[in-house]
Design a protein around this nucleic acid. Structure first.
Lengths: 129, 129
DNA sequence: GCTTACCGTAAGTCATGACTAACTATGTGG
DNA sequence: CCACATAGTTAGTCATGACTTACGGTAAGC
């Protein structure tokens, strides 16, 4: 877990998230990224600096160019962070569901339907009013 | 997936993250949260509003008080978002490692964190709503 | 060596949002 | 009905950070 705080702050910015998602599709140089983005090249450089220090991307030199690609470390850090809360939310949810029965447990409007993580929730919760 | 964008933006703020983590430990009222935090009660109220619209917390009335607790939906949204990139980063990593061999692939030093999140990727359970 | 291409850094501007203080609204108990 | 307690809302202030322009620095081609 490199630093989930930095990773969260980094991906909160739309431009940075866009850069990150493009790098997830394919590694790219700074200029190539800036060419397809609505911001200047220095802006992209600054964003990459933030992403790198957050452990979300890594780079290497190729002549005068620098090729950036995503780094699994940062993703893993965030994954572990939320895994922790996932457990806690499950425990809480189960307690409320059992002791409160059908009072206010329906407060959470489970919008998420399918998805690996959501399934683990609905799998164990089993709220049979 | 409720809205991973809003969820990421919400948890990027330190105060909001602190509130969220406290709610993960135990559901609380607004005043109780503000009493243990270095900010005023209206500030907590505003943060809770953001967290709620991001699907990260849910609330219910208890007299004049409002009890807030974490909502699994928001966590699930972020989980799914990163799950997607986890796959891509793994694929990328494998390609680079195999085709580059020992050139400059050492740029990304993320071999350590394989276990934890990888498990989640393989955990695809399924169920019907 | 000199030019060209590519990138990072510095300084400065400007908008977003986090915060407080004052007010309003609603529920509870005498 | 009145006093109290709790919480959401509004207006305004202030700091953080996202962006651009200008500059410096390094590697490749002629």
């Amino acid at each position: 877990m490199t630093n989930y705080v930095a990773a969260l702050a980094a991906l909160a910015d739309p431009t940075r998230r866009e850069i990150f998602e493009r790098l997830a599709k394919s590694p790219s140089a700074v200029g190539d990224l800036a060419r397809d983005l609505p911001v200047s090249r220095p802006a992209v450089s600054q964003h990459l600096k933030v992403l790198k220090s957050a452990g979300l991307v890594s780079d290497y030199a190729d002549g005068t160019r620098r090729i950036y690609s995503i780094d699994p470390a940062g993703i893993a850090a965030i994954g572990e962070y939320f895994e922790q809360f996932w457990q806690q939310s499950l425990a809480r949810f189960r307690v409320i569901a059992s002791e409160a029965g059908a009072s206010e447990a329906g407060a959470s409007q489970a919008g998420a339907s399918e998805g690996t993580v959501t399934e683990r929730a609905t799998h164990s919760v089993k709220e049979e009013t």
